[in-house]
Nucleic acid binder design. Structure first.
Lengths: 311, 311
DNA sequence: TACGGGTACAAGCGTTGGTTGTGGCCAACG
DNA sequence: CGTTGGCCACAACCAACGCTTGTACCCGTA
């Protein structure tokens, strides 16, 4: 199906006749007639009843019309998403399931007129390059380069500390615990599939392992969270970490448990990063929204890597 | 833009390389390459970075991808809307602003997995023909043929009585009234633009006029509800009727008032009509939903035309 | 009965979009 | 360090699509 054909259908429907639609689209009436005929042939239904004074929609055409309009709307948004200059605000985040996603959903609810696009870049270095080139407008990240401060032209603000919780199945030794401490986890197998070296998540857990002597297995490809949850639920000796604010589709009947981790609570610190000179109007709105919405978290009793962007 | 091109983009993005995408789409690798190149030329941005072992998305490509998927989803729904056999439940109603629209929105919230399409047919005769031919599955209508009962193969159930209210501007003589009676309205100008002869609305107001001696002006084309509301707000001597449950975008600063009408309250009786032999599975669900949701209205103190479908 | 306004059909033709064939690039491997 | 394998881009060729011009047909109206 060709969107020009769909546009022709909508124009003919609005005009009530092919000739006027043809004039609007700057083609001949015969071209409109052939386009409509081709669309009808593709769909297998008649869309217009031709009359001596024009063409009016059949019932099938009436049913198709709103879908056609929606198609054109979506197509326009798709084109706008890559338009240079005045494109939607493009935000990078560390993972689609992270707390940053929740922040952006809340922002979208508060400012629905600001068009958003989310991308997931590989790591902080890619994100910084993209911020500087203008390919993205903002990035939710936790870290500077290892051991290095952020460059001068990148600004940042700490927006959310996401506490990690332990996710375990019903047969796990800690299944009945109200909470666990990090030191209690020493010796337990913690499984984090899909941790890619070079990413901040990998660095985060590397540091966590080094500081508290945990055994984290990052082996194996990531088959998706469903497979992960299945395995966790079925394997008594296995546990995994999960963002405490993640609202996932909770599988029924698995008996999965979330156990808070304390003394200290490992938190993942999300900061918003942006380029000093980025002129996108939505960026200022996003910064204002996050500044107003971000409750200043209590840093006592929590753990973050020392390379995190300071607040 | 061509949807085959968009499909090619999504396939190449999923496969991570053009060759595999080409195999899936049953075309040559060169065709995929040309399609992607054409899409990039149209959009003005590079979507993939070509590497010796495949192609991976650029940031622009990542931003475009969800829009492309959405485009394909919408296109599929559009095609499904006119597919013969197993198409969405197609429901006709008397007006997009009527209470039937609210009922269908509630049904969609309760049963979001049932795909719906709404069409607006001219009058009851068209609707009956469409029900019989299977072009539509259900119709919200108020009346049988004037003076004739419904045919045997059409079944019906009364689902909602919609009370009409008076809509007036702040300078109208009745602006401060808590409620008005129908007899009080005699002599006042009531303006209902866009009442088309041959429709049930026209018949409804004809009967209302005849029974209570009102003066209803149906003259003039319908320039849309915004223009209607503007005129009502600015003209002290003008009033109009409006469905009491209509939730419209209430214009600010107009000072418009809704006054309940009593003794009796004119109500518009909505019934659901369907063909006895219609096999659409969504129809049974809709009927069950409406039967459960419809509160049996109190008929005392209300007025409906005598040709309404009896309850 | 002619006219005007609308649509559909036919013929001609340029352009698009597919295929085959080929070359270039880069990583992996002997 | 050269060869091989896998992948993408470019070129040439060709069929098919889609637009234009010209024309016929239909129907309400003067």
């Amino acid at each position: 199906m060709d969107l020009d054909t769909v546009r022709t259908f909508v124009a003919a429907s609005d005009a009530g006749q092919f000739q006027e639609a043809a004039a609007e689209l700057a083609v001949t009436q015969q071209a409109v007639s052939k386009r409509i005929a081709a669309l009808e042939r593709n769909l297998g239904v008649r869309l217009f009843t031709r009359t001596p004074r024009g063409a009016e929609l059949t019932i099938d055409g009436q049913a198709f019309l709103p879908h056609a309009r929606e198609l054109l709307r979506v197509a326009e948004r798709a084109v706008a998403s890559v338009r240079t200059g005045s494109r939607p605000l493009r935000v990078d985040m560390i993972a689609s399931r992270s707390a940053a996603s929740g922040l952006m959903r809340a922002f979208h609810r508060a400012q629905p007129e600001i068009d958003l696009d989310v991308v997931l870049l590989f790591n902080i270095e890619t994100a910084l390059a993209a911020l500087r080139s203008g390919a993205i407008d903002a990035s939710f990240r936790a870290v500077a380069m290892p051991g290095r401060p952020l460059p001068d032209d990148i600004e940042s603000v700490r927006v959310l500390d996401e506490p990690l919780q332990l996710l375990i199945g019903p047969a796990h030794a800690l299944a009945s615990a109200r909470s666990v401490t990090l030191t209690q986890l020493a010796g337990h197998r913690i499984w984090m599939p899909g941790l890619v070296p070079g990413t901040e998540w990998a660095a985060y857990y590397d540091d966590l392992v080094a500081e508290f002597g945990l055994t984290i297995e990052a082996t194996g490809p990531n088959f998706g969270s469903d497979a992960l949850l299945d395995t966790i639920a079925d394997t008594p000796a296995l546990a995994t970490f999960m963002g405490g604010q993640t609202r996932l589709v909770w599988p029924a009947g698995h008996g999965l448990r979330r156990i808070p981790v304390t003394d200290p609570t490992p938190v993942y610190p999300h900061s918003l990063l942006w380029h000093r000179d980025n002129p996108h109007p939505g960026l200022a709105t996003l910064r204002a929204h996050l500044a107003a919405a971000a409750a200043d978290p209590d840093a006592a009793g929590t753990w973050t890597p020392d390379w995190a962007i300071p607040r």
